[in-house]
C-alpha cells in the first residue's frame, strides 16, 4: 500500500461525515471541508508517531502539515528521509 493510500484509509476511518459516497482528493483540505474534527489532529499526531516511528516536534505541529493527504505524506516523507 502506498503512503497516500495508507493516510487516506486512516482519514476514512476517522471521518465525522457519514455519507458513504464522500469523496476527497489528495489536495482537499479535510479540516476546512469539515470531514474531520479538531480531535483528529491529535489522533493523527499519535498515528504518525507510532506508525512511522518518529516524533513530531512543537514547531512541526502546524495545521499546514496535516490538512491535506498530500501535505501529510510530504511531511512524513520529509521527516523519515531526514532521519
Amino acid at each position: 500500500m502506498s503512503m497516500h493510500e495508507q493516510i487516506r484509509n486512516f482519514i476514512q476511518d476517522n471521518l465525522v461525515v457519514f455519507d458513504d459516497e464522500v469523496e476527497f482528493s489528495n489536495e482537499d483540505n479535510i479540516f476546512e471541508l469539515g470531514f474531520v474534527n479538531s480531535l483528529f489532529a491529535m489522533k493523527l499526531v499519535t498515528y504518525i508517531e507510532s506508525e512511522f516511528n518518529t516524533t513530531i516536534e512543537s514547531d512541526e505541529m502546524d495545521i499546514n502539515n496535516f490538512n491535506t493527504i498530500d501535505n501529510i505524506v510530504n511531511f512524513i516523507s520529509s521527516k523519515t528521509v531526514y532521519q
Binding site: 480531535l39 489532529a41 514547531d59
Partner: peptide
C-alpha cells in the same frame, strides 16, 4: 505551540 494550533493542538492534548 504554533499560532492557530491552540485548540486543535494544545487544548486537545491538555484535555486528554
Amino acid at each position: 505551540g504554533k499560532e492557530g494550533m491552540g485548540f486543535a493542538g494544545i487544548a486537545n492534548f491538555a484535555l486528554d
